[in-house]
Design a protein around this nucleic acid. Sequence first.
DNA 1: TGTACATCAGTGAACGCGCGTTCACTGATGTAC
DNA 2: TGTACATCAGTGAACGCGCGTTCACTGATGTAC
Lengths: 192, 192
Amino acid sequence: VKVTKEKASENRRELVRAAGRLFRQHGINGVGVADVGKAAGLTHGAVYARFPSKQALAAEALAEGTRQIVALMRSSVAHPTIEDYLDFSLCKRSRDNLAGGCPLTASGSEIARQGKIVSRAFAEGFEELARAIQEVLSDDSDYATVRERALTIAAAEIGTLIIARAVARAAPRLSDEILTASRRVLGEIGGE
Amino acid sequence: VKVTKEKASENRRELVRAAGRLFRQHGINGVGVADVGKAAGLTHGAVYARFPSKQALAAEALAEGTRQIVALMRSSVAHPTIEDYLDFSLCKRSRDNLAGGCPLTASGSEIARQGKIVSRAFAEGFEELARAIQEVLSDDSDYATVRERALTIAAAEIGTLIIARAVARAAPRLSDEILTASRRVLGEIGGE
DNA sequence: TGTACATCAGTGAACGCGCGTTCACTGATGTAC
DNA sequence: TGTACATCAGTGAACGCGCGTTCACTGATGTAC
């Protein structure tokens, strides 16, 4: 069942897209290779024709997903400030949209237990996010460099979203409170 | 093979302890019920004689583990400041000690996919951590309440550790840099 | 204190199921003539 | 432009394995006499 070269590379792209969506929703370990294949209208065999392993697919899906969400954040408003970025990331819509959100947040604590290729993709994705944040920070702080503040805000954003999601079902009030608090306090770091 | 009542409750405690250690190290979904039983010197059947499900065991292990690490942090120095807490949490020792560390950090993004009992245990654990932090914060900020700053610092600490661990294998330099940056910047929020 | 026996902590086989990966195969594509 | 055939994208059976949970059973404990 060979297919057109165009169809083949579209299938490959679709596999990465489906993998990203499913891995974000259910975690990397919570999704089978067959599930990814099926979501792309293919079988698990098609995955192994394109990727050497599930890890390789996960790494590519992580990289692609991060690139997309950072691009979306960058273009969310015309001349974004750190407050715009915080509003974009730390809101209920973002919290409740696991499948369409940031892979760094969706898979965070899972990464330490994945292979080195996944860790590498994660590190590069995090650097990209931190760079985007750094570009909108003012440079006039006297206690920390822009890079230090950008790294801290990036990590804090991810932590905030992870916690807000973790407690959402059992303590929805607390979840909202955390989002609001972080948006406010991190805004102060960024605005100084 | 009935055992002494004392031995029985010691076995139960040991199951919770072993579960906590293993779940932190490999993730909740990365450890089987049989693994937990074996680590406590028992079989998987013994787990089900004591806990209605793996979820219930995970919830109890999460609660117990958080209680212990917060207590340890509180008593790490005589009259702790926020800087002491940050030094305690955001260091290489802490990052590299997955099994002995904080369950909130080890399981963070996994929790949104667990049952409600696990989410509840997580929420209570996070409240405990935030309360401990709040107690060492000064009250003289004009832009945010102590509670807001405590919630933000707690979430940021967890996010920082998760990222530092995720990138540790592929980008050790970046991992160290993140720890240092967060310790510095979060200290400023706490000290204002 | 000694004996008989009910209790129940813990055992281990069995359940149905899904996992990642391999590989012999299929059949449409696209190329060589 | 038409035909023959090599290529290779994708299929699906099979591999060995581990999962959470149930349940009939075992045998030491601890109680009633």
